[in-house]
Design a protein around this nucleic acid. Sequence first.
DNA 1: TTTAAACTATAAAGCTACTATAAGGTCAAT
DNA 2: ATTGACCTTATAGTAGCTTTATAGTTTAAA
Lengths: 135, 135
Amino acid sequence: MRIGQLAQLVGVETQTIRFYEQQGLLPPPDRQDNGYRVYTEKHGEGLAFIRRCRILGLSLAEIHELQSYQDDPHQPCTAVNALLDDHISHVRSQITALQALEKQLVSLRASCNDDREVEACGVLAGISEGKMHQQ
Amino acid sequence: MRIGQLAQLVGVETQTIRFYEQQGLLPPPDRQDNGYRVYTEKHGEGLAFIRRCRILGLSLAEIHELQSYQDDPHQPCTAVNALLDDHISHVRSQITALQALEKQLVSLRASCNDDREVEACGVLAGISEGKMHQQ
DNA sequence: TTTAAACTATAAAGCTACTATAAGGTCAAT
DNA sequence: ATTGACCTTATAGTAGCTTTATAGTTTAAA
Ligand SMILES: [Zn+2]
Ligand SMILES: [Zn+2]
Ligand SMILES: [Zn+2]
Ligand SMILES: [Zn+2]
């Protein structure tokens, strides 16, 4: 299986596959005589794993860490669970921050209607005068 | 006022100020004979504006756009309000996406306890087997 | 058979919004 | 004279790719 087929199978671009290889997330495949990469099913599974991790918002470093745990399967999985817990709390704090941001933006938006000149725009005035709840 | 003082006043690093100048967000200040930048109060206000926009999550491009509106103050402020509306909906869709993500992560986490081996880890199994709600 | 499309390869740059580092010039005080 | 704090420019690094450039290979059509 060549890189293009693998890419289509998993739904990524070929460059992304090369990029993961370069980053040490995908093992370097064998090469044909012409230098073309040849992939196996294992590679397909590995790539799909990476993609699902990415969809879950895990960083490449976190994925790397998960892979290292997979490499000795008889360790307790505490670290895996902890990694996910950390990630969840990270996501939660992002949500909290964005919700606070949304509140600020909405109140800023409410300070203007559409029938003003830029000079008198409540939004611009609100930003300029620093009428923002700091944090 | 030199760059260090301005930086301390507004609470940014000097490099950030030079960076904004380079990006066309801050007008190039006059220079002393030795080449040092000299800033006025106007620059201070401009920089504070930029920083407050950044705190609101606006991109440099969006800030640039806002500045262009400020440059002719007798236009209607419709575009300003629209920019903010767009940004709000952007923030909201981020929140929605993160909440969906959190749900996925929590359910994934629930599929494991701390007393397993990596081999049997519910989290890793969940990712590997693609038991994820796509999207 | 020639040629063009589609594929592969590597290397390097671009994206965002900075931050950090390097190497050096300026200025006040000691 | 030298230290230290400040300033200058230029360059690289961060994350996770995407895009571009340049070139070699395979496959299919004309
Ligand atoms: Zn994380
Ligand atoms: Zn307005
Ligand atoms: Zn925005
Ligand atoms: Zn587990």
